[in-house]
Design a protein around this nucleic acid. Structure first.
Lengths: 165, 165
DNA sequence: CCTTAACTTCACAAATTTCTGAAAGAAGCG
DNA sequence: CGCTTCTTTCAGAAATTTGTGAAGTTAAGG
């Protein structure tokens, strides 16, 4: 029998996964603590952990958990719940919702598009640079539409492969 | 008539675009100098600038240009050329190639997938957490395939909209 | 209401990243 | 071949980011 994290899983394996997956997320630009918290939730039994559990499992201060969760909630990677009749908060990864958060990046795309649109206007759509910016803008607009369709196909594919989990 | 950058475009407008677009890229995780260099190339007349031009236009040291270009070349966002018979190097954005660089991120996805696969193995595919990781892995594999198809559709769409630029 | 458990905010110390000037390294040109 | 011009590397100063302890805030439970 292996040592347990409290819910019966192998603490060593969990930690190893959490750290290596988090490292990849960090490399892709996510804040370190946010990445670790997210990975820990992914690897948890129910996809739910309390602030205290995260603090202990990851060996970080409650302040760090708070900051990480704020970021993750803002970007819709996790949701926060309050158990009724308790001041203990629980954080959850919701399969369906974080895929979208990860791929959509609506807000980011929108801001890129805004900057490009301004560029096209001020440089003029009839200059070589203006045309290049316009084409880039068109690319992002295209991608935006495609991603929506792709997520729909994923939902279908997922249903078929995993049943309605 | 507006002041010029040397090739006849309005220096003020160009700079404004470069800085605001670069700022968005930085927010999305790109290094600041790399983002500025890339934006400057996008907004340049021919999509080509020399090291010296970048250095002067962005008010940064040759060393900073060197570092930024190294990053951009590694990630295939720009290509470097050397004019034959000169030790002056030129850097170029190649419409077609940087779209792919931006969307593909093959290497990144592959590493995420590797970390997830290890997680599934060590936690066991029959545990709740293992199943969650397996589903996440399936999602990335799905996305990987979709992106390739999407880029193909973009090429067609682009051809129709902009002609064979 | 008052106590107390839990989360959040804040100021600061530590670590990391970023950019520069200077020196070293290529490569054309005489 | 050495000179000159351009690029890269490197060590360090400066700025930014990160995580913590401590104080502050909110709300449950007596």
């Amino acid at each position: 029998m292996t040592e347990s994290v409290g819910d019966g899983r192998d603490a060593e394996s969990v930690s190893k996964f959490v750290e290596s997956f988090a490292a990849q997320l960090v490399e892709a630009g996510m804040q370190r603590m946010a990445a670790r918290v997210f990975a820990a939730l992914l690897a948890s039994d129910k996809g739910v952990l309390t602030s205290a559990e995260l603090s202990e499992q990851l060996q970080i201060s409650p302040a760090a958990v708070s900051g990480a969760v704020r970021y993750l909630a803002q970007t819709h990677m996790v949701s926060r719940e309050r158990e009724p009749g308790s001041r203990r908060e629980r954080y959850r990864v919701h399969g369906d919702q974080w895929y979208e958060a990860l791929t959509n990046r609506e807000a980011v795309l929108k801001r890129w598009e805004a900057a490009l649109r301004e560029g096209v206007n001020s440089l003029g759509g009839d200059t070589p640079a203006g045309r290049r910016l316009a084409e880039t803008l068109a690319f992002f607009e295209f991608v935006e539409g495609e991603v929506a369709a792709m997520m729909e196909r994923w939902r279908v594919h997922r249903e078929r492969t995993f049943g309605q989990g």
